[in-house]
Amino acid sequence: MQRKSLISAECPIARSLERVGEWWSMLIMRDALHGLRRFDEFSRSLGIAPNMLTRRLNGLVEAGMLERRAYSERPPRYEYVPTARGEDFRMVLMALVAWGNRHYAEEGISVEVVERETGRPVQPVMATAEGALVAMDQCEVQPGPAASAGMRQRLNRE
């Protein structure tokens, strides 16, 4: 158990899923990045129970994905605005759209990612820091500077 928690704590995928990997959290972020801001807007869009929505919104605020801003004092009302961290999550959701369309849209594509200006469909890609495109099959995960010995051993399967 101790070993598993150490690996999870060090793994960026596990850390990310801990904060946004729950079904409702991802759908709330989808809606927030699409412009919804208020509790009643999320509730209408998702059909989620109010207590569950409150918990998920609070979790996303705690994770730094959304910022809670008051828009009414009497009665107290808040809107939820994506932070820079939340905006960065957009690429994750767009990758999920593309992946879902590729593998699970048997009835046809109902939503697609397009270039705003031209309306042309786009696909997620990997690029170097300088902007050069890199084929996905040419990418791999390697230990980073802060990787533990265990993580280095796990990723360097030599």
Rank of each mutant, 00 (worst) to 15 (best):
S5E: 15
I7E: 13
E10C: 09
C11I: 05
I13H: 09
A14C: 14
S16G: 13
E18T: 15
G21V: 05
G21M: 10
G21K: 06
E22F: 13
W23N: 13
M26E: 15
I28G: 03
R30K: 12
R30H: 12
A32F: 09
G35F: 03
G35T: 01
G35Y: 04
L36M: 01
L36Q: 01
R38T: 05
R38M: 01
S43F: 02
R44S: 15
L46S: 00
G47P: 04
G47S: 03
I48F: 02
T54N: 14
R55P: 01
R55V: 11
N58Q: 14
N58F: 06
N58T: 13
A63I: 09
G64V: 01
G64D: 07
M65I: 03
L66P: 08
E67R: 12
R68Q: 13
R69D: 04
R69N: 05
S72P: 00
S72Y: 03
E73I: 12
R77C: 03
P82L: 09
T83C: 00
A84C: 07
G86P: 02
G86D: 09
G86W: 06
V92W: 09
V92D: 02
A95H: 10
V97I: 14
G100L: 09
H103A: 04
H103S: 08
Y104G: 01
A105L: 05
E106L: 15
G108F: 04
S110Y: 07
V111C: 03
V113W: 00
V114W: 10
E115F: 00
T118E: 10
G119Y: 04
Q123K: 15
Q123A: 14
P124K: 01
A127E: 14
T128W: 05
L133T: 09
V134G: 04
M136Y: 12
Q138T: 05
C139V: 14
C139Q: 07
E140T: 10
V141T: 07
V141K: 02
Q142E: 15
Q142G: 15
P145C: 01
S148E: 06
G150S: 13
R152S: 05
Q153G: 01
Q153P: 00
R154H: 12
L155P: 12
N156T: 15
R157E: 15
